[in-house]
Amino acid sequence: MIRKITQELLDELIALERLLLEPHVRESKERLSMLLDDDFYEISANGLLFDKRHVLSRLPSEKVPQFYNQDFRGQMLSDTLAQLTYQAAYRRNAYSNLQFSLRMSLWRQNVSGWQLLFHQGTPSPEFVLKYD
């Protein structure tokens, strides 16, 4: 049964989701490893599948793109599994066009706290960015 998420937990998971976009986290295998569940996998916006090992080997050397995310929604799928959905836009550098997507993440609570279990990005039509 899907349950309503508390505002406190929603805020915590949004902060963790955004932490994954911070250069000091993306460039650190140790910090990334703490945020990603051992069973983590991702389906990228272009349909590629990545596991934790691949992300830890790729992300620290990748240039951090500009990210914008908004309109977060959350729900509890079980006592230890939460789902976040949101809109995201990103660009590789200041000269490239924005790419728009809908994102979904599953966060699992374990003895280490909340860790990202699954993430998927799906291309979407352009939407209005809210700079708040």
Rank of each mutant, 00 (worst) to 15 (best):
M1Y: 09
M1S: 14
I2S: 03
R3C: 07
R3D: 09
R3E: 13
R3V: 04
I5V: 12
T6I: 10
Q7E: 13
Q7V: 08
Q7H: 12
Q7A: 14
E8A: 15
L9H: 02
E12R: 09
E12L: 10
I14P: 05
I14Y: 06
L16R: 14
L16K: 15
L16E: 14
L16M: 15
E17W: 14
L20H: 02
E22T: 11
E22W: 11
P23N: 02
H24W: 03
H24I: 02
H24Y: 07
V25M: 02
V25P: 00
R26K: 08
R26V: 00
E27R: 11
S28Y: 01
K29E: 10
K29W: 00
L32V: 01
S33T: 01
S33P: 03
M34F: 00
M34K: 06
M34D: 05
L35G: 10
L35K: 06
D37P: 09
D37E: 12
D39L: 06
D39A: 15
F40R: 09
F40T: 10
S44V: 03
G47C: 09
L49H: 14
L49D: 04
K52L: 09
K52Q: 09
R53V: 13
R53S: 14
H54P: 00
V55C: 08
R58N: 02
P60K: 02
S61Q: 06
E62C: 02
K63V: 05
V64H: 04
V64K: 03
P65F: 10
F67A: 05
F67L: 12
Y68V: 14
Y68H: 15
N69W: 13
D71Y: 13
D71N: 15
D71E: 14
D71K: 13
F72T: 07
R73I: 11
G74L: 00
G74A: 01
G74W: 00
T80F: 12
T80K: 10
L81I: 11
T85G: 08
Q87F: 03
A88L: 01
A89F: 01
R92E: 01
Y95E: 07
Y95M: 03
S96L: 12
N97G: 04
N97Q: 07
L98M: 03
L98C: 00
L98H: 05
Q99E: 14
Q99V: 15
F100V: 02
L102A: 09
L102C: 10
R103T: 15
S105M: 04
W107H: 12
W107C: 11
R108P: 01
V111I: 11
S112C: 13
G113E: 12
L116N: 11
F118W: 10
F118C: 04
Q120A: 00
G121D: 05
G121T: 04
T122L: 08
P123L: 08
P123C: 03
P125W: 06
P125E: 11
E126S: 15
F127W: 10
F127T: 06
F127M: 09
V128T: 12
V128E: 11
L129D: 05
L129G: 07
L129A: 06
K130E: 13
Y131Q: 00
D132W: 04
